[in-house]
Simulated assay, not measured.
Amino acid sequence: MSARPPPDAPSLLGEGASPAAAEPHYLGHRDRLRARFAQGGADALPDYELLELALFRAIPRRDVKPLAKALIRRFGSFAEVVSAEPSRLAEIEGIGAGVIADLKLIEAAGHRLARGAISARPLLSSWSAVLEYCRATMAFAAREQFRVLFLDKRNHLIADEVQGRGTVDHTPVYPREVARRALELSATAIILAHNHPSGDPTPSAADIRMTREIVGVLDPLGIIVHDHVILGREGHASFKGLKLI
């Protein structure tokens, strides 16, 4: 039988330590965070903690709170982090291909969920869902994009297409291309949408001019422009609401 150490022999784990105390501190934090999310949902967590949950799978053995906070400092919010371009995400130390893939998957899932809310219903009777879809897909993008929602005679969605991507403050749009695509799809109406990366959704003079050009091309074809919505981090602007069309 081996000799037992005397009661006052020093522990290899340190004075007062136990095997459980030697575990990484973040393991208990992860369990508590998951429990809070399970009980209260996303509303129970600030953006950086929700982002921590998103990082757990890609980074299983590391405290990700500093990284989550660094991402929020750089981009501003959870939505802006998952919407950020991969090249900008990669600029953050500790962000690799696995993390970027997970974040872009979350973004894509959000877009699919928002699209599902509008795909089976007349769009004009579910306008809040249309705005939420446009906000999810465009509001936090770093560059301008111009999107067209093509509708049938019952105002159901036929197709949702990005007609152009541009710089931080300009997207080239060609009214005749919009008309050509509407005719190809047998659309009887469209909704226009684009984003302002500056965050301010106020229509510019160029936005107003371009919208009126599209209306002018489509009107003789019997295709209605229901609205043009501009999305920004600070909200949205409706051309119809502003009586610009």
Rank of each mutant, 00 (worst) to 15 (best):
Y26C: 02
H25F: 14
R62M: 12
P6S: 15
G16K: 09
R176Y: 12
R212T: 05
L53I: 03
E93Q: 13
P24S: 07
G241Q: 09
F78S: 03
M138T: 08
P201Q: 02
V229F: 05
I214C: 03
F37W: 13
A84K: 01
F150P: 06
E132I: 08
P197F: 01
G216F: 07
V229K: 01
D31V: 15
G96E: 03
G164P: 00
K243Q: 14
A237S: 15
L67K: 00
P6E: 13
L218A: 07
P60W: 01
S119D: 10
G98I: 04
E91A: 14
T167D: 08
D227V: 04
L27E: 11
R147N: 10
S2E: 15
F37I: 13
W127D: 05
A35L: 08
M210W: 08
S126I: 14
L218Q: 00
V217H: 02
H236F: 15
A35E: 12
Y26G: 04
S125Q: 13
L183Y: 06
L157D: 01
L89D: 05
E85I: 07
R209K: 14
P60K: 00
G40R: 08
L89T: 09
H226Q: 12
G41D: 06
R165F: 11
A20Q: 13
S198N: 10
R74P: 07
G110V: 02
R57G: 12
R147H: 12
P6C: 13
S204Y: 10
K243W: 10
S204F: 07
H236M: 13
E93N: 15
L67H: 02
G41V: 09
G94K: 09
R74M: 02
N155M: 07
L123M: 04
R34H: 14
G96F: 02
E132R: 09
G98P: 04
V82E: 02
I214W: 02
E132V: 09
G96C: 05
E184I: 08
T188Y: 11
L67G: 01
D31W: 15
G76P: 08
I72E: 03
G98C: 07
N155Q: 08
C134H: 06
S126W: 06
V229L: 12
C134L: 14
P24A: 07
A159D: 03
I223H: 00
A182M: 07
R233V: 04
D200W: 12
G41T: 07
M210H: 06
G216A: 14
N195G: 05
G16S: 08
A17C: 12
A120H: 11
G235D: 01
F78H: 03
A205T: 13
F75S: 00
L157Y: 02
A3M: 15
L221I: 10
D43C: 10
I224C: 13
A44S: 11
H194N: 06
G14K: 09
A97G: 11
F75G: 00
A193C: 13
L123E: 00
A182K: 01
E23N: 12
A108Y: 07
E52V: 08
H194V: 05
P24V: 05
L131E: 07
L50C: 04
H111L: 10
V99H: 00
A84S: 10
R165T: 14
R209E: 14
M210S: 12
A206W: 08
E132A: 13
F75N: 02
E80L: 05
